[in-house]
């Protein structure tokens, strides 16, 4: 398992379009990806769950990545968040 931690920089968190992009990104890989915010953990395959987490600016999001291509998945997430947070 690889764990990645990001501090969300977008002023108002992750909304519908970034969430769509994130789900689609993760779908390209075989690994299972979960986001943990505080006590709650959700799978990164559900728009309802991701929006329900209400990720906001300054939130620390922990990603747990498990699977045969976990390092590629982790790299892709890194790139995604670098772009998002530019």
């Amino acid at each position: 398992m690889i764990t990645k931690v990001y501090t969300l920089q977008l002023p108002d968190g992750i909304h519908a379009r970034p969430a769509t992009a994130l789900i689609r990104l993760v779908k390209q890989y075989k690994s299972e990806v979960r986001i943990q915010k505080g006590e709650r953990t959700v799978l990164v395959n559900s728009m309802l769950n991701i929006l329900g987490l209400m990720p906001r600016k300054g939130d620390i999001l922990k990603f747990n990545i498990v699977g045969e291509d976990e390092s590629e998945t982790a790299e892709a997430l890194d790139e995604f968040f670098t772009q998002m947070n530019h």
Partner: peptide
């Protein structure tokens, strides 16, 4: 298109 993309993800939401 972006809005419909979001709707497509919502339709197929595994949690739902």
């Amino acid at each position: 298109m972006d809005i419909l993309d979001t709707h497509l993800e919502l339709l197929q939401d595994p949690q739902l």
